[in-house]
Structures are given as structure tokens and as C-alpha cells.
Design a protein around this nucleic acid. Structure first.
Lengths: 257, 257
DNA sequence: TAGTGGTCTAGACCACCAT
DNA sequence: TGGTGGTCTAGACCACTAT
């Protein structure tokens, strides 16, 4: 398995370091030799050693820490989110929101912050899925930040048609109370019966990199979630942006014949 | 919305270019000024202009093409894969595999190449899901490459317990015939009834970057798919690795009450 | 052949961190 | 304070693409 351009000094050095990491010689958490030491030992300029490290960081194998050194990235345990997290049984047995239930299950501490609730114009993809006017202030927008052990792991922007949310706690209160969001929807006549989740991945924007403290070489999962009620009506759309090194999705579905 | 470190020359230049791209002044496909021109115009060294471009490439906004220039990345249409692609109805109405059906639907040309069929030791996560011995040569491994208009878009490695595949076409033939893989499983007594898909994202390995021709700043979706039959038995596990700029997943599921 | 990106050098100074 | 990564400079040569 030859790496690309084995004859280039930066690639050769990256290759050697990669081997040391994947073989376990440099285990997760280990500190790499400093850029200056690598350069001297391999007879290259410091910038060349730096380029080698950049390649590894881009692959997600190492992370650099200013003033401390470069370290082999630790394997982080994934928070797994499955479709069963929306079930009423889960909701009622724990009294927790889907997110809190999963984090608690892993013995970690969950925190959710609702940072804003506004009435606004929906993005086109959201308007399409909700079947609302994409040009009027027809939705309530709720922005939620999700933390595990005080580390930010996800952001979720929920859009609810004004027709549904207007006048209810959904449009006014950050606190959702027992059973959380979906219990309130059910009281309003919308029981979540079907979920649709459209998943893709991409590199984070500069804002997301900052807000979620995404390390170099880590993408985000971009999940467009739609909640559909017993009448087939889409009553809520949420765009989740999740650090891909800390989150995974776990879907289990019947196959229609 | 301040970018990080607005006072650094490379970040300032990256910021200006980013604005030009997101505002539409530099539309998808547009060519950026050359590194040397950017450097001269902004009074910085060429390496600094280069660093600005690297930042944008890392975000997935531009791609550099050796000898040609740096271009604003075109928005690519996503191939969308939903769970309904496994249904017998879809299979029988089109006679196509799930992949071919989706690509055809978009008016593109599908090609699937089965590059190897071997009997081997399964990876631990696969063995776990199949309930087979992780230390013996207990599975058939099939490697498939998926193309759309001759561009590689996915790889799938399918593992099937030897107990199920042994002696059948699944263990010997690259061609699956009408109705594809799942029709053959059904003939062997395993009708796909439930699918489980565990999804995460990461940066591609050097091999994947080469094999899938993944551009800079594009992650891959890593999907561990399990096919489960009418008796609740896992009869097949496939690890899909998909270019995230060309593929999306679209799940629609009932919520158990 | 001219222009582009890709790599490399050998320095310099700054910012951060541990001691 | 000394060692670390982060950024920048001003060159050089190579590899690729278009003309």
C-alpha cells in the first residue's frame, strides 16, 4: 500500500509517522517529536516537517496544541442517536429529551441551552418540507446548543410553523418541561409518528469550527430532521450540525415489502 | 460575524475571498486570481496567499487544479439513498440494484464493479453484528466500487457468513443477476426485513483519497449497514464509504410508540 | 513556451504553555 | 525562561496545463 508520492520528503515523513501511529508505536495521546526535532532528524527544513504534520492533522490522526506539542488523537466515544429516541416509551420512561437520555445512558452529563427563540422567515429547504410560505415570517425558530460534560457537541435549529407554535410555550419558553419538545407537540395534536432524516457530511464553516470547537481534520454531520404526525403532516424541521468525531447515527428500520 | 484572527494577513485574505464566494461575486466554477497575483495585489508573500487558499480548500469552498488555477467548487447534485431502496417492490419494479435505481433516476450512468471476492476473517465490528467467530475465515468478503458517469462515488465491502454464502453465487460470482444481491439472499431463505445503518463521517484515508479521487476538504460518510431477515438474523453486513460531496442518506422511519 | 499550482529552503518573529 | 506551535518572508525549482 504505497502512499502518494513516496519520494517527496514531506510525504515520506508523513508516511513514517502514520505507520508509527497505526502500528501503535505512537499510541493515542502520545506526543510527537517537535517540528524542529523532526526537521533536524530527517534533514529537512522545519516547514517541510510542518507540512508532514499538516497532512496527518488533515486526516484526523493528530492534533496540534499551541505551545504544548502535537499529539496522536484519542479515540473518542461516540454518542449514538437512533430513531427510537423519538418514541413515546423512551420519552415517558425517562422523562428526558432524546438527547439527554442518550448522554445519560453513557454516564455523561448533558446540558442543553436554548440560546434564542424568534419568529422568522424559513430557509427554502425547510419551507419546502414544512409546506409553508418561504417568504413570510411564518415559522418559529429555536436555536439549541447541546453539551456533554460541558463540551459542545451539537447545534440544532428547529423550525415550527407559526400556525402550530403560535401562542404556545413552543414560541415563548426555553424550558420545555417534562417529556420535552415532543410531549408538547403531542398536547397540541401532533404526535410524532414518522421521522425523516436527510444526512450528509461536510467540513464545518468558520463559525461552526469556533462554536463547536471542532478540531482540525474533523467534519460535521449535517442532519435535516423532519417530524411527521399521525396525519402525515410535517410539523417540525430541525437542522442538526454535529461534530462527527463525537456523534454517530444509528438507524434501525423495517423494510417495506 | 468576525472570522478568527482578522488581523492576520492570511486570514484577512481568506476572509475577503470567502465573502466574494458566498456573495456570488465569484460564482461556482469561477477562477480565482493566481497565487502570485493575489500575493502582489495584497502585498504579501506568495506562501501567505497560498495559506489563504488552503484555508478555503479545507472548508470545501475551492479546489486547486495543478497548472490550471484555483476554482470555486461547483455545487454537485447529491445521490440520495433511502431505506426504501431495499424494498422488494423497488427491486422487482426496476430489476435494478438499489444503487443503479438511484443513479438512473437522476439520469446518470451507473457502473458497479465487483473487484474481489474472497473468504476471509471479518473485522471485529462486523463479526459482532453477524454473530460469527472473529478469528476464523468465516465470511465471504465482496468488494464493490460504484461509479456515476465513470466517476467513483462509493466503495462497499460486503461480508456474508460462510454458512450462508458458501456454495452459492454469492461466494463465486461477480454478477448477481436480475434483482441483484437481495433477490439472491431471498432465494436462500433470507428476505431483508429490517435494515440497521450506523452512520458517521470522517476524513478519508490516503487510500480512499486516491481510490475515490476525493478532493481536498471533502469528508466521507462511513455507513455500517446490516441486513436482517424475517427471523431477526443478521445475514449480511456492508461497510459503505461514500464521498460526502456526492452522496446523501435519506431515511424515513415509523416511530414506535 | 508561459503561466499555473506544488514543494522546499533557511531564515525570522510572535503567541502560548509549562516550569 | 525555554520550548513549543503559528505565521510570515523571499526566494528557488519542479510538474502540470494550455496555447
Amino acid at each position: 500500500m504505497q502512499p502518494t508520492d513516496a519520494q517527496l520528503p514531506s510525504r515520506r515523513l508523513a508516511h513514517q509517522l502514520r505507520e508509527a501511529i497505526t502500528s501503535g508505536e505512537l499510541p493515542p495521546g502520545a506526543k510527537l517529536p517537535s517540528e524542529r526535532v523532526l526537521a533536524a532528524e530527517h534533514g529537512v527544513a522545519r516547514n517541510t516537517a510542518r507540512e508532514a504534520i499538516r497532512l496527518l492533522a488533515e486526516e484526523g490522526l493528530v492534533t496540534a496544541s499551541h505551545g504544548r506539542g502535537v499529539f496522536v488523537r484519542e479515540k473518542r466515544r461516540l454518542l449514538r442517536f437512533g430513531s427510537e429516541r423519538y418514541s413515546r416509551t423512551t420519552r415517558e420512561s425517562t422523562g428526558l429529551s432524546p438527547y439527554r437520555a442518550e448522554v445519560a445512558r453513557q454516564g455523561r452529563t448533558a446540558r442543553v441551552e436554548c440560546t434564542s427563540i424568534t419568529r422568522t422567515v424559513p430557509p427554502v429547504d425547510v419551507a419546502e418540507r414544512l409546506g409553508v410560505d418561504p417568504e413570510s415570517e411564518s415559522v418559529v425558530r429555536r436555536e439549541n446548543w447541546y453539551y456533554a460534560d460541558d463540551e459542545p457537541v451539537q447545534v440544532g435549529i428547529t423550525y415550527i410553523p407559526w400556525e402550530i407554535a403560535g401562542g404556545s410555550v413552543l414560541a415563548t419558553s426555553a424550558q420545555m418541561g417534562k417529556g420535552s419538545l415532543y410531549a408538547r407537540f403531542e398536547e397540541l395534536g401532533h404526535a410524532i409518528t414518522t421521522v425523516r432524516e436527510e444526512v450528509t457530511a461536510r467540513m464545518p464553516t468558520p463559525e461552526e469550527t469556533r462554536g463547536l470547537a471542532v478540531p482540525d481534520g474533523v467534519p460535521v454531520l449535517d442532519v435535516l430532521h423532519t417530524g411527521i404526525d399521525q396525519d402525515g403532516r410535517a410539523f417540525e424541521v430541525t437542522r442538526f450540525v454535529m461534530r462527527a468525531d463525537l456523534n454517530g447515527l444509528d438507524y434501525r428500520m423495517p423494510v417495506e415489502q
